[in-house]
């Protein structure tokens, strides 16, 4: 939870953020504090190398070697009753330690427990698919490949799922710019009209604060606004809204709001 700050005069205070503020970590508890998790962990420890294990927010987190991922999930599903894979994906830690973290969030309906398996792989390393155990991993692994570029071995259909097939780059990596690299900026132009059309169509306008020269004529000017209700007409007559131009449509009579009557009394 964030520390409480008084909200009385938030506007008066200058906006200030601490650049060196580090988010506090959620407290980690020892696995022995939960009997169910402890027996699960002991079962895992008897077969696999466990790098780290702790309980965080009532869920056990187990860090394993990446090579063991299929066997660990197989054991969790078939002998430890963790029969649902709620979620799986990757986390980009390339800048910090040059690795991807792959996590598998498991749920046991019978034990009413949630457990998270984590493992780390290098940037170019690939990981074994768990699609044979959990069908839902099919699309999750494709998305992981699509967004991070983590190649999954033995996947039945290893292909991008969200981005176009000919897309370059992996958008959820921290190094990928939010507004796209050069390939992304010209993607639709290159694909539809070809690279020659770049000069004709021009670059994207990515500046939300860009001011069009004609906006000053079409809309109120910044810095020249007047309070609501102030008369700015300088005596010019009002132009009524018309839906039908004069002599516009053949055989259709123009609706003239000036000669028409607005009925306000519903029971007349």
């Amino acid at each position: 939870m964030r520390a409480y700050t008084p909200k009385d005069n938030v506007q008066a205070k200058p906006y200030y953020t601490d650049r060196f503020w580090v988010a506090p970590q959620v407290a980690k508890h020892d696995v022995s504090s939960d009997a169910v998790f402890e027996s699960d962990l002991n079962a895992l420890k008897s077969k696999f190398e466990i790098l780290d294990a702790y309980i965080q927010v009532e869920q056990m987190v187990v860090v394993i070697n990446a090579a063991d991922n299929f066997a660990v999930l197989d054991m969790l599903k078939n002998s430890l009753q963790y029969n649902q894979l709620s979620e799986m994906s990757a986390i980009d830690w390339l800048a910090k330690e040059g690795k991807f973290e792959i996590f598998y969030q498991m749920l046991s309906m019978s034990k009413r427990k949630r457990l998270r398996i984590k493992c780390k792989i290098d940037e170019k390393e690939s990981i074994q698919s768990v699609e044979k155990l959990f069908r839902c991993a099919d699309w999750s692994e494709r998305e992981m490949y699509d967004m991070f570029g983590v190649v999954v071995n033995n996947h039945p259909f290893m292909k991008r799922i969200l981005m176009p097939d000919d897309w370059e780059g992996f958008p959820l990596r921290k190094t990928y710019p939010l507004q796209g690299d050069e390939f992304a900026a010209w993607y639709e132009v290159d694909k539809i009209f070809g690279k020659e059309a770049r000069e004709i169509i021009g670059p994207e306008n990515r500046d939300p604060a860009r001011i069009d020269r004609y906006d000053t004529e079409r809309f109120a000017r910044l810095g020249h606004e007047v309070p609501r209700g102030v008369d700015i007409t300088n005596g010019e007559p009002d132009t009524p809204l018309v839906y039908q131009e004069k002599n516009g449509a053949f055989l259709i009579t123009k609706f003239d709001p000036e000669t028409s009557v607005t009925i306000t009394d519903r029971n007349r």
Partner: peptide, 18 residues
Amino acid sequence: NTGGMFNTYATVQGVDRV
């Protein structure tokens, strides 16, 4: 019109580009 609030890599910034 302009891509709107989706100032991201995956959105065409205005259909008049196409």
